[in-house]
Design a binder for these strands. Sequence first.
DNA 1: ATTCATTTTTGTAACCGTTACACTAATGTA
DNA 2: TACATTAGTGTAACGGTTACAAAAATGAAT
Lengths: 149, 149
Amino acid sequence: MKRKAIGEQLLQKDIRPSFPRLRVMEYLFKNRNHPTVDEIYRELVQEMPTLSKTTVYNTLALFEEAGLVRRVASSENEARYDAFIEDHGHFRCESCGVLYDFTIRLEKAEEEGLDNFEIRKRDILYQGLCPRCRNSGIKKLIIDKGGYR
Amino acid sequence: MKRKAIGEQLLQKDIRPSFPRLRVMEYLFKNRNHPTVDEIYRELVQEMPTLSKTTVYNTLALFEEAGLVRRVASSENEARYDAFIEDHGHFRCESCGVLYDFTIRLEKAEEEGLDNFEIRKRDILYQGLCPRCRNSGIKKLIIDKGGYR
DNA sequence: ATTCATTTTTGTAACCGTTACACTAATGTA
DNA sequence: TACATTAGTGTAACGGTTACAAAAATGAAT
C-alpha cells in the first residue's frame, strides 16, 4: 500500500496523516510479523531521531480505536499489533516465540452460549511447536540419549 | 472438588500438596471467573496472613507447567487463570471487562497452514458487548437523543 | 503574513504486574 | 537429632505502559 493511499485511509477516519502516523501505518503494512511497540519504535527512530515511544503508543491506540489495526491476543505480556483486520488465526511457537498466521474458517465452528452477545472481534491463538522447533527438539532428544556422537 | 481429591491430583503430578497450593487450586475450582493473581492473593491472604504474592505466582507457574491450569489469552496486560483445561471459548466484554465462557466446537472449523505444527493448546477469545452492557448502551443512546424524559 | 486556538509530539516520571534473589521456614530422611 | 532438600517469604528491581505537562506543529481567522 502506497503512502498516499495510507494517508487517504487515515483521513477517512478523521485522523490527520502526520508523518509519524504515516510511517507507523506503513511499517505495519510492510511488516506483517505482528511487531511489538518496541520493534516499531526502534526501526522508525532511525529515520525520525526525535520520535518518542509515547507517540508510537498514542498512534497505535488511535489506530486501534478507529478499527484500522488490531492488537493481537497473546499469552505474553507485551502487546503486538497487526494491520490485517480480517479474522485469521495466530500460532505462537512456545519454543522460539515466533507468531505465525494461519487461515481458519469459524463459520462452521458451532458456538453455544453467546445469544444476545454482540461479537466485534474474534481472536484465535494456538500454541505449540512450529515445524522447525519440533524438528530441532527431536534432534535434541536423540543427542541427549546418545543417538548422535 | 474436595480438598483431598485436589491433594491427590497434585501428588499425581509430583507436586507436594502444601496448604498454599491446596488453597490456590481450590480457589480456582470454586471461582470459575478467570481470576487475576491479585484477586487470588487478596482472597487467600485473609486466611493466610503471611501469604506472599510471590507464592501465588510460583504456584500458578508450577500448576501451569504441570498442565493443571491454563493462563487464558486476553487482550489485557494482567494474567488470568482458569482451572478448566478442556478447550472452550472466552468472551470479553469491552465495556465491563467481564470474561465469559462459551462452548465452541473447533473440530469443524477448517484450518489451513498448520501442516507439521504441533498444536498443544487453542485459545479462543471473542470481544464485544455482553447482553447487559449492550442493553444499557441502547438505553443510554435513547436518553442522549431525548427519547426518555 | 500574523495571531490565536487546537492538535500533535515529546520527555519525564510514575504506575503496576511480574520476576529475581537471598533469606527463612517447613518438610523428609537417615 | 542432624542434615539435606523443598517451599514460602519479603524486598528490590525490571519492563511495558500510561499520565502529564511542556514544546512544537498545524489550521483558521483576521
